[in-house]
Design a protein around this nucleic acid. Structure first.
Length: 558
RNA sequence: CUGAACGUAGCUCAGCUUGGUAGAGUGCUCGGUUCGGGACCGAGAGGCCGAGAGUUCAAAUCUCUUCGUUCAGACCA
């Protein structure tokens, strides 16, 4: 690409409405442009990067024997009605009607259509296994788009779907995809960690996420350095770490705690360790009030609660719901409640703890499990700093991640819903076992930029950089320099070295800054010594500038 | 969806409190001087002050409505 005659621009100021380093840099460097909240144009440079990511993934998918297809984005709503996900996705699914008033959706993910496509192929166990995949634009009406390309309403995803006759087959197919994902992300050049995750709306047996390590990540990852344990916080098991085991149980006692509404205030007022308190959370679970009792220094984990109760929605209870529970907010305790109560496993191990008395201005001390009645117990809190690994008992570590890929063992959920069956060896009808596997391309691009930038701009890993090299002509009015630079450009193209020629009539400083902003891995400066056949060669990653001949440069770039 | 902030030149913003026909920087165009890290001088082009309604002799400025954007939360592959 010769810049003078290309669609190419950079901005000098930070974008006002970008809230992430990657979003800002991609906008500033002219890779993408926002059209509305969560919807971006892919400009020439941006599309080149996305295509490179796509090519790498395609190569590894094809190597597993998967076949590429292309499903529509515009889909009759009935497919999602059939699988029950019209409800599952709720307001996140884009709905529209055609002129005949037929309900349509813009596909948020494509399990249904792939299952439907598989029906045409699958008659008997002999027809499996196989795997289909596509690169497709997905639409999700996110409640809040943010962080540039990280959370958007329209994005391209690679999604793959495997079909097997039984669970053992699924395990094999899953492992193939899993390995292909590792190879893809390694080649792209992203720093990632694989974690166990919640199956969410996808349902199924197992979900693992490929998380790009980044401070602005929306997911919290919990892992252990001593063993292989690694999990998304939303499903991370909590090993009850606090026990005051053998102390003798005392008798429960009411004490006045005037104006102490939060557990911190109570602990401070009574001079208690907050780890020996139990707090109550009054929640709205599918429209019904439920009170949860957890250790004072814990947070309630909503996905664990939903799973435990088999519920779909959770939020704080409003005044009307609270009034039905007979609870006294701020002093809510386990006594005399008129609703379901759930106790965290950790509380089961506590003795002589402090909790609300359910009476304005009072808490109880020396409470014990025997004093409480509850309906259910389970692991319903978030792991936190200081917790121990549930596998090996070493201290857990925490980091933030951006989910760039996800693999699911779906099992038979969709084949049951979509009536996808085959005849086995005994000519008995059986459900097909499915897996689904996704990678967000734009999100991957954003995550790479989050991980690879400095104060001057983007630093692309070589494998997904839009171009490998950029040739700068220092003095455009110098015909000799122009001629030499153009010859170099032609030579590179001949050799298949993708490069940019900055032949704009700009001052050197502008060209240096733009080259750094857009993050091209190698920069060649055609300047003073060009006539002698000497050029400056600089890697975007390193500060050193080296003088080289054309042959030496070509050797480096080949 | 709830709460808050913002919307003025291509971009980043000032002006609004105290109403009087629109400003800066940067980018852009032309001329000149420059030419190895976002140069300098001069001359220009560029705005229905997000949209609508109201108050007023007069509204970017005050009031109401609406749309958009962003933040916090909720939500979320």
């Amino acid at each position: 690409m010769k810049l003078k005659d290309a669609y190419f621009y950079t901005l000098r100021e930070d974008a006002r409405d970008e809230d992430s380093a990657s979003g800002n840099l991609l906008v500033k460097a002219g890779y993408i442009k926002k059209t509305s909240a969560g919807v971006y144009m892919m400009l020439p440079l941006g599309l080149r990067v996305q295509n490179k990511i796509e090519d790498i993934i395609r190569k590894h998918m094809n190597a597993t024997g998967a076949q590429e297809v292309k499903m529509p984005a515009l889909i009759a709503a009935e497919y999602y009605e059939e699988s029950g996900r019209m409800k599952g996705f709720g307001p996140s699914i884009f709905k529209l009607k055609d002129r005949n008033d037929k309900d349509m959706v813009l596909g948020p993910t494509h399990e249904e259509l792939f299952a439907y496509a598989a029906k045409s192929m699958i008659r008997s166990y002999k027809n499996m296994p196989f795997n289909l995949y596509q690169f497709q634009t997905k639409y999700r009406d996110e409640p809040r788009a943010r962080f540039g390309l990280v959370r958007v309403k329209e994005f391209v995803m690679k999604d793959a779907y495997s079909f097997d006759k039984d669970e053992a087959g699924l395990d094999v197919s899953y492992q193939k995809m899993f390995d292909a994902y590792k190879k893809s992300f390694d080649e792209i050049g992203i720093d990632y960690r694989i974690v166990r995750a919640d199956t969410g709306v996808m349902g199924g047996l197992l979900s693992e996420e490929f998380q790009a390590i980044a401070p602005l990540g929306e997911d919290t990852l919990v892992y252990c350095d001593s063993c292989s344990y690694s999990s998304n916080l939303e499903v991370g098991k909590v090993l009850p770490a606090y026990e005051n085991g053998n102390v003798e149980m005392k008798d429960i006692e009411e004490v006045a705690t005037p104006n102490c509404r939060t557990i911190e205030e109570v602990a401070k007022y009574l001079k208690l360790d907050i780890r020996n308190t139990v707090k109550a959370m009054i929640m709205n679970v599918d429209g019904e009030p439920v009170v949860f009792f957890i250790k004072g220094d814990r947070e309630l984990n909503e996905s664990k609660v939903l799973k435990l109760l088999g519920a779909t929605e959770i939020g704080f209870a409003d005044d009307e719901l609270i009034s039905r529970t007979n609870a006294v907010p701020g002093f809510c305790g386990p006594l005399g409640l008129h609703c379901r109560t759930v106790v965290d496993d950790e509380v089961l191990h506590m003795k002589n703890f402090c909790c609300g008395a359910n009476k304005e201005g009072y808490h109880c001390i020396n409470a014990n499990l025997k004093d409480i009645s509850y309906d259910l117990s389970g692991d319903i809190v978030n792991a936190k700093e200081g917790d121990l690994c549930p596998i090996c008992g070493q201290p857990l570590k925490f980091t933030k991640g951006i989910e760039v890929g996800n693999t699911f063992k779906l099992g038979t959920k969709y084949s049951k819903a979509m009536d996808l069956q085959y005849a086995d060896e005994q000519n008995q009808l059986q459900d097909v076992w499915m897996g689904s596997y996704g990678i967000g391309l734009g999100r991957t691009m954003a995550a790479v930029v989050e991980q690879n930038h400095d104060e001057k701009g983007i630093i692309w890993p070589e494998n997904i950089a839009p171009y490998k090299a950029i040739i700068l002509i220092m003095i455009t009015k110098d015909e000799e320099q122009c001629r030499i630079a153009n010859e170099m450009y032609d030579k590179f193209n001949e050799l298949g070295i993708e490069c940019i020629l900055d032949d704009r009539d700009e001052r050197p400083g502008v060209k240096f800054n733009d080259a750094e902003l857009i993050g091209i891995p190698y920069r060649i400066t055609v300047g003073k010594k060009a006539a002698e056949g000497i050029f400056e060669f600089k890697s975007r990653k390193d500060p050193e500038v080296q003088e080289m001949t054309l042959d030496q440069i070509i050797e480096k770039l080949k």
